[in-house]
Nucleic acid binder design. Structure first.
Lengths: 226, 226
DNA sequence: AGTTTGATGTGATTTATATCACACTAAATT
DNA sequence: AATTTAGTGTGATATAAATCACATCAAACT
């Protein structure tokens, strides 16, 4: 870990862009940078939450331990803040964050974060906007989850990986079948079967973790209709 | 509708408590109060969103039109803000709000709201905290939805009505069976059956819309376990 | 009074998907 | 090299809950 200079950081957030020189040095003093390898936990559910995390680079999954199973709430791709709701909304983390790719993260002390909100309205405005967007996304995810069957949910997440995470029709799945099941709220076996079905229909091509989307339109239809 | 004086409002929010006299008059000038009877729509999905709503009194349901059915995202009881995420996060409402009880609501112009965030950090801090709490609640709801079966979800919502909305073991259901189904993400028939089952087990007593919780502990068990 | 309408209860059937069971593979460990 | 382990595919079975179908009832309307 090293203390970072936020003033010269090329990966800083839009919210931080609003900070004045003196505010940036306040931030820099309480901000440490850390690298997480694939599989490493950034913060853990039920632990005390005393930091806001800013993801500079990488990809992270948010996990909740439910009564029956562990569930992947969502994937978060850098650049973004992590743990704002879980840190500002309560003293204890409501979910865990685990890197699923090599990830660089800045740890910002919660009091510094609160201080920045207090002294810089443009900063807090950006944070509010990000929170609002998250809530809307979360509502949509919830509606999809209930109203689509597994087929549709799987299609939705494949499209999401393609368009939002990797910006390509071909990519390596960052999760194994069992984790995909946790993400689409289904079982490992069902995911396995449906991926085969999609491949048989020549909508996708799967080879282990490598995935290629052959027919984006049909995948989109499946994602919307069912 | 009438213009209200926020300075003398007894029902104002914690966020508004932070405002100075001059800021209160800014708010008061762009703030109008309106009453909604049961069943009346406060704002509508897909319409342009140009107001933040502050619920002074009453009870509201948030609705989303999904591909298959309409779904009740959540109930919101006064006092609280409505439509912060849907107004700040996008130009268009992502859900509707409908009164399910006589409700008093203040309409705050979005630009005034933004201005208040800009000029008063304590105000925006309170808004951030409320947004964070909402997001955590929403995550929990989502986990419950996936991991519990209908029985557990129904129990959860009955307890929620009892403890958070009506603060009593007896109350009149503000929704019909079909709407309860939309709330617990199930079908009208299943809700009907499960309510009967709970009554047979003497966990609750139902008479039309009137509901009495007889055995809170067992209901809590059902809510948690399954 | 008679009729339409909307809300509700309850049995029978269907269906999506979880679960169980096992086989296969590749990588890791002994 | 042999063995354990983790990840994966796929058939058979079980099951929660949706859907269909109908009956009942009360309120609203003619």
């Amino acid at each position: 870990m090293k203390t970072s200079s936020c003033a010269s950081c090329l990966l800083r957030s839009k919210a931080v862009d609003n900070l004045a020189e003196q505010e940036l040095s306040v931030l820099g003093e309480s901000c440490v940078e850390a690298v997480f390898e694939k599989g490493e936990t950034i913060f853990k559910q039920d632990a005390l939450s005393s930091n806001i995390i800013y993801l500079q680079t990488g990809l992270v999954k948010l996990l909740v331990k439910g009564p029956q199973r562990t569930q992947i709430l969502r994937l978060k791709k850098a650049p973004c803040y992590l743990g704002v709701p879980t840190t500002m909304g309560d003293k204890i983390n409501h979910y865990s964050a685990v890197a699923i790719e090599r990830t660089t993260a800045c740890f910002i002390d919660i009091n510094t974060f609160k201080e920045l909100i207090r002294i810089n309205p443009d900063f807090s405005y950006e944070i509010i906007i990000e929170l609002c967007r998250n809530e809307l996304e979360q509502f949509n995810r919830c509606v999809k989850l209930v109203q689509n069957q597994v087929f549709g949910r799987l299609a939705t997440h494949l499209l999401d990986l393609s368009t939002h995470i990797y910006q390509s029709d071909q990519f390596d799945l960052p999760l194994n079948r069992s984790e995909i099941a946790d993400l689409v709220c289904s079982s490992r076996e069902t995911v396995s079967r449906l991926l085969s079905d999609l491949a048989k229909e020549e909508i996708i091509k799967v080879d282990g973790k490598h995935l290629e989307i052959l027919d984006k339109n049909r995948l989109q239809q499946i994602s919307e209709k069912g």
